[in-house]
């Protein structure tokens, strides 16, 4: 049977094509400096503002441009954090194999071994007892204790811990412990300004410049409603989705309705208000 997919080991994943990323400020220089000095990085910002894309871009950039120290480039290990994420899920576990057991490394252990960028997405979703595990990795020691095997693993040179979280909608209960957050330098992300966002939308969605401008304008207007009915402003990602739908021939009003209005909120009044804004920007 023909295999129409590719399977690679998690630690072998590298970004080889340049992802589109439009720097908004000096975040690229900051990240490079942090990488060179083994300083873990915390990326803060609202959903869909480009945190994950930034990490991918940096992984590619470090691989291609400053990756001289490591000829093989910088692999990117991404772990989506959730409530049930356990230490075993990160570090590794024993599996039964025949009558014996076999140890298998978790993604964090693999990243540490190969010197990858380990990206813990939405870190606050993980339980606090799990996040404590990364403490020795995130300071000068750069070690990962593998408790079940009684081993200590020193991180390879290229290893960098990066985490992201969205301070906006997290409740107090889900805030990061200070002992965790004070091990990271933090880079704050906001939404790009209208011109930048318009360029992002155009490049990402292949829509026309005019549509991209209108969508960026819509983004700016809708974000004014944050905390006046909306918990979170519309993400660049959603605007890109709308752009893609429009580029594919969907009427702009319909595209915005599905990708922005309905996606953002279930409150009928806020939906109508956003829809009226859409109707003001796009012609019927």
């Amino acid at each position: 049977m023909d295999q129409n997919f590719t399977l690679i080991q998690i630690e072998d994943f590298r970004i080889t094509e340049q992802p589109f990323y439009l720097p908004l400020a000096d975040e690229v220089a900051l990240f490079e400096s942090a990488y060179n000095q083994h300083l873990p990085v915390l990326l803060k910002g609202p959903t869909g503002c480009g945190k994950t894309r930034f990490v991918e871009y940096m992984s590619w950039r470090l691989h291609r441009h400053v990756g001289n120290r490591d000829e093989d480039g910088v692999p990117l290990v991404t772990i989506a954090c959730h409530e049930d994420l356990t230490a075993s899920d990160l570090v590794g576990r024993y599996l039964l194999e025949g009558a014996n057991t076999r140890w298998i490394d978790g993604p964090l252990t693999r990243a540490v071994k190969v010197g990858a960028i380990c990206y813990l997405d939405e870190i606050v979703e993980a339980r606090k007892d799990t996040t404590v595990l990364i403490h020795p990795l995130a300071d000068h020691r750069r070690i990962l204790p593998i408790e079940k095997r009684g081993e200590l693993l020193h991180a390879a040179d290229g290893f960098l811990l990066v985490m992201s979280f969205n301070p906006g909608y997290q409740s107090v209960l889900k805030d990061l412990k200070h002992s965790t957050r004070q091990r990271f330098i933090a880079i704050e992300f906001g939404y790009p300004n209208r011109e930048q966002e318009s360029e992002i939308i155009r490049k990402e969605s292949n829509c026309t410049e005019e549509i991209a401008k209108h969508l960026a304008k819509l983004g700016e207007k809708v974000r004014h409603l944050k905390s006046h009915g909306l918990a979170e402003g519309v993400s660049t990602r959603l605007l890109v989705y709308a752009g893609k739908l429009i580029a594919d021939g969907i009427h702009p009003l319909r595209a915005c309705l599905t990708a922005v209005v309905w996606a953002l909120t279930d409150d009928a009044e806020v939906q109508q208000a956003i829809h009226e804004v859409v109707l003001s920007i796009f012609e019927e």
Binding site: L225, E269, V270, A273, V277
Partner: peptide, 14 residues
Amino acid sequence: GNLLRLYGQALAGE
């Protein structure tokens, strides 16, 4: 009123 308030806020700022 509520709809117009939200609309005005969206257009002119929060």
